[in-house]
């Protein structure tokens, strides 16, 4: 599964994207964030700070209950600040 990161999340993680093998225990966006939050990587703990990181699956904003499928493009980012 392809993961993309933007803005300060990208900077804190030190990468703009990565490929991961989805563990079978991870079925939803929220579960993926919990799993990512437990990884021992710089900035990983940001995923555990609930309510901060937003997600999009296949370029659509989604909530934590959204189901994941192999091949999805999942993006994580801070609250948006356009306009």
């Amino acid at each position: 599964m392809r993961l993309l990161y933007f803005a300060w999340l990208r900077e804190r993680l030190g990468r703009a994207e990565e490929e991961i093998a989805l563990p079978s225990s991870v079925r939803t966006v929220g579960e993926l964030m919990t799993w990512l939050g437990k990884r021992e990587v710089p900035g990983g703990a940001l995923f555990g700070e609930s309510g901060v990181i937003r997600a999009a699956v296949n370029q659509e904003l989604v909530g934590p209950e959204t189901r994941l499928r192999e091949g999805d493009e999942v993006a994580f980012f801070p609250p948006m600040t356009g306009g």
Partner: peptide
Amino acid sequence: LIDWLKTKAPFWKK
């Protein structure tokens, strides 16, 4: 339009 662009479109300002 401007209110939603600020909070619901994937832009980030530095």
